Simulated scan of single mutants.
Amino acid sequence: MDPDDLDTEISSIRAEIRTLHHRRRILTSSLLSSRPLQRLSKTHSLPPPANQSHRQQEWTDISPLLQSSASHAQTNHHRIAFSTTTFPFTDPSPNAEGKSLLGIRIDICARDGRYMKPYYVLLRRVGRSQGGDGGGKKEVKVLRHTIPSVVDMARLERVYLPLESTAEDGEEEEQLKPWKRKSRNQDLKSFVREVRKGLVVWHLRCDAVRYLRETLGVVTRGVDDDALYEDDERPWERDILGPTANTDGAGETRIAKNKFGIVSLGPTSLEAVYVRLEWEDGRVGRFKISNTGVVERAVVIGDAGRDKLTEGILTGGDGRVETLLQRLEKSTVPASPEV
Rank of each mutant, 00 (worst) to 15 (best):
S69W: 01
Y274G: 01
R196H: 04
Q186S: 08
N258F: 01
L143Q: 15
P94E: 02
R210M: 05
R210C: 03
D318I: 07
D4A: 15
E278I: 06
D231S: 02
S45K: 04
T215F: 01
L176T: 03
T166P: 08
P47R: 04
V300Q: 04
V126H: 11
Y160L: 10
R238I: 06
D303V: 13
N258T: 11
H21T: 06
L188P: 07
L163I: 07
E172V: 06
S269E: 08
G170H: 12
R196D: 00
G135E: 09
I62H: 04
T292E: 13
R283T: 06
R205N: 08
T146F: 05
P49S: 14
E214V: 02
A208Q: 08
L265T: 03
G312Q: 09
S45E: 14
R55D: 06
P178E: 13
V294S: 04
G170K: 14
R297Q: 13
V339E: 09
E278G: 06
S71Y: 02
G266W: 06
S190T: 13
K259V: 11
P243C: 04
V209W: 07
Q130Y: 05
C206Y: 03
E164A: 08
V151P: 11
L204P: 00
P267E: 13
L65M: 07
E252R: 10
H44Y: 06
S63H: 12
I301S: 14
I147K: 05
A81P: 04
V284A: 09
L216C: 07
R105P: 07
R128V: 14
V192W: 00
V121K: 12
D169S: 09
Q38H: 05
Y119T: 05
E157M: 04
Q56A: 15
I10M: 14
Q52M: 05
L101T: 03
Q186N: 07
L309P: 00
T247H: 11
M116L: 15
S331W: 01
H72Y: 12
V275P: 04
H22T: 13
P88V: 01
R105V: 12
A250R: 02
H78L: 15
L40Y: 08
G131P: 01
S269N: 14
R184K: 08
I104E: 01
I108V: 11
L46V: 10
E296A: 09
S71N: 11
R297G: 02
D248Q: 12
V150T: 15
D232K: 06
W236R: 10
D232A: 09
T8M: 10
Q38W: 01
L270W: 13
G136M: 04
L66C: 02
R158E: 15
D61N: 10
K138P: 01
K177Q: 06
M116K: 08
T220F: 03
F260S: 11
D225R: 14
G266Y: 14
D112I: 04
D5A: 10
R283W: 01
F287C: 00
V126I: 15
A154H: 15
N51P: 02
A15Q: 14
A50L: 12
